[in-house]
Amino acid sequence: TDVTFHVNGRNLHLKGADEELLRRIEELIRRGADIEELEKAVKEWEK
């Protein structure tokens, strides 16, 4: 799945995201995470 999140005026584009990653990103956004936290979560998922 390709999806782009718009967070605090910045874009986080995910290519090939699975349901697990999407749920994790949505949860972080609900908690008020900043873009750096979201990018870190994506990097951890990519490993």
Rank of each mutant, 00 (worst) to 15 (best):
G32D: 03
G32F: 04
T4P: 01
L22W: 03
A33F: 13
T4Y: 06
L12T: 00
E46G: 13
E36G: 07
E44D: 11
G32W: 02
V42Q: 03
A41W: 09
E36K: 05
T1Q: 12
A41L: 10
T4R: 04
K15D: 03
N8G: 08
A33L: 09
F5E: 05
D2Y: 08
E44P: 02
N11L: 15
D18Q: 08
D2Q: 04
L28I: 03
G9S: 02
G9Q: 02
K15S: 06
G32C: 03
L14V: 13
I25A: 02
A33D: 04
K43T: 09
D34I: 07
L14T: 01
N8K: 06
E19F: 13
A17D: 04
E20S: 13
A41E: 13
A41K: 07
L38V: 05
D34Q: 09
E44C: 11
R10T: 12
V7Y: 10
H6E: 13
N11C: 15
A41R: 08
I35M: 11
T4G: 04
K43V: 11
D2T: 08
R30N: 07
K40Y: 12
G16D: 08
R24Q: 09
E44K: 09
K40I: 13
G16P: 01
V42E: 01
T4A: 04
R30G: 09
R23W: 11
E46W: 10
R23F: 10
D34P: 05
E26G: 12
I29D: 00
T1L: 13
A33P: 02
G9T: 01
E27V: 13
G9E: 03
E20Y: 15
A33Q: 06
K40C: 09
D34E: 11
R23Y: 11
K15Q: 06
E26Q: 13
H6V: 14
G32P: 01
N8W: 02
I29H: 04
R24H: 12
K40V: 12
R24V: 07
E26Y: 15
K43Q: 12
L14E: 00
L28T: 01
D2M: 05
E37L: 09
N11S: 15
A33C: 11
E26S: 13
E27C: 15
G32V: 02
I25R: 00
E19G: 11
E19C: 10
T4Q: 05
N11E: 15
A33I: 05
R30P: 01
R23C: 05
R23S: 08
K40F: 12
